[in-house]
């Protein structure tokens, strides 16, 4: 697939953008060095039987692995902490800005299932006013009942689940209009 190569050849930069839209830029071809506070450090990806894949950086070893990957989205577990990035080209970076501008003013908050499980109880109804942190439903996963709380204050506009429903991870449970 010769064209994919030319995509990378044509551009001289890639961006890793995290969930909070912070971006890290890397020049192509990608070097085994990164710049921190204007100083450059060597970074090496290594692997051995005892440790598995790890990164050697500033004389320390960091366990690293991919938790999830989909298209250009990567969830990386480095030193036990998970980081999610999308890798963007200069063109898709522009597009990202355009889309976030377009969506910027949205006052809709969607509560998604943090894990697969079964809905035990829905504690709110449509049109109810709720505070931030108020429990909105109980989700049972791995025999534990987890209270799902509202992340914002506002008014419930839609309830998509009812008791005894099974839900998948990231399934939309409830929509809230932010105050």
């Amino acid at each position: 697939m010769a064209m994919a190569k030319t995509l990378l050849q044509k551009i001289n930069k890639l961006y890793a953008v995290n969930a909070k839209k912070k971006k890290y830029s890397f020049s192509l071809p990608l070097e085994d060095r990164i710049k921190v506070d204007k100083k450059e450090f060597d970074i090496k990806l290594k692997e051995d039987d005892k440790l598995g894949t790890y990164i050697l950086w500033k004389n320390r070893k960091y366990p690293v692995e991919v938790v999830f990957k989909r298209q250009n989205k990567y969830e990386i577990l480095l030193n036990g902490v998970s980081y999610t990035f999308t890798i963007e080209t200069p063109t898709s970076m522009k597009r990202l800005r355009f889309i976030s501008r377009k969506k910027g003013s949205s006052d809709k908050e969607v509560i998604k299932a943090p894990m697969p499980g079964k809905i035990i109880d829905v504690l709110v109804q449509e049109d109810a006013e709720i505070r931030k942190g108020e429990p909105i439903l109980i989700l049972e996963a791995m025999k534990m009942q987890n209270e799902i709380q509202s992340t914002v204050a506002g008014k419930i506009t839609a309830v998509h689940v009812k008791a005894n429903d099974s839900v998948m991870k990231d399934e939309i449970l409830i929509e809230i209009k932010k105050k």
Partner: peptide, 15 residues
């Protein structure tokens, strides 16, 4: 800093 290291790793995988 570690986030930056993770970002480098993700970019490397993409490339």
């Amino acid at each position: 800093e570690e986030e930056q290291v993770a970002a480098w790793f993700a970019t490397k995988l993409f490339v």
